[in-house]
Each structure stands twice: as structure tokens, then as C-alpha cells.
Amino acid sequence: MQKKLWMVVALLLVMPGLLFMVSCQKKVAAQAQPAPAPVAAKPAPAPAPAPAPAVMAAPAFMTERIFFDFDKSALKMESQALLKKKGEWLKATANAKLTIEGNTDERGTAEYNMALGERRAQAAKKFLVDLGIDAKRISTISFGKERPIDPAHNEAAWAKNRNDGFVVSF
């Protein structure tokens, strides 16, 4: 993941013009995909403009999680609104790919939670595919109850841990 980010950063350094051509970004980025490896491999000491392109690559709402009720994989209204926003961006950023990570809280048992986590990830994927995003651009993975974002054992933590996480790659 980090490597890919560096690749993007390196590419942007090679083509600073890109910074001012947001509307063309996807095209240029798509063409630039087979970048010569040596360039990417150089761990360039990140100069000042580095944070800016990273933000451009994936806006904050793209990695914002959606949350679920206990033992449910149905998408809530606010989750659907957020997924629509993510869908628009994916439409406008054709070279971006999305991994959806399904998670559950610690209650319940590991086996069933792994299945539940996958259904949560699949629910978000189906919603995006129904919006017209190519299914091939979206992959899902379930972590079940294995990767809580809040390790506490209370309702507040459980509510946070019942989620889909989103990872954008190019």
C-alpha cells in the first residue's frame, strides 16, 4: 500500500503539471500506470507538496467507515448517502480501485462473525455496483471480529467496531 502511495507521489513529482490539471487526472494517471520501477523505488525524501497529492488521490470521505446494527448487514440511510458520495468519486476517478473490509464487534462467535463481516462488505459493494461502478474495481474482505478499531468492551466500542472500512488504491 505504502509503496503504491510512493509511486503516486513520485509520478506527481515527475509531472508537476498534473497538480493543476485535476479534471484530467484520471487519464494522465491511467497512462502513467506502467511507471519505470527505478523511479518509484527511490525513496525520495518527501518534499513540501507531498501531502497535497495524497489528499487529492483519495479524499477523506472515501476512507470514512459506514456502521451497522448488531448482527445486521443492512445499510443504514446515512451509510447509503455516504456510499453515493463514494460512488460519484469512483465514477469520476476511473483508475481508482476500492477494497471494502467488513468488520464486526466482539460479541458473538468468530466463525459466524467472519461470515457477517463478509456480508457487510458485500452489501456496500452491491450498493456501489448498483450505482454503476464496475464490480471488477471493488474487492471485499472480511476480518470478522479479528480487527476491532476500539478494543474496549462496551457498547460505544462495539458500535464503532461494526463497520465497513474502505481502502482506495490506484
Binding site: E111, Y112, M114, A115, L116, R119
Partner: peptide, 8 residues
């Protein structure tokens, strides 16, 4: 053959 989860 059933929609939903079949595990364990």
C-alpha cells in the same frame, strides 16, 4: 443452498 450465511 441458501442465501445468507451457512457456516461451522
Amino acid at each position: 443452498s441458501n442465501r445468507g450465511s451457512n457456516v461451522s
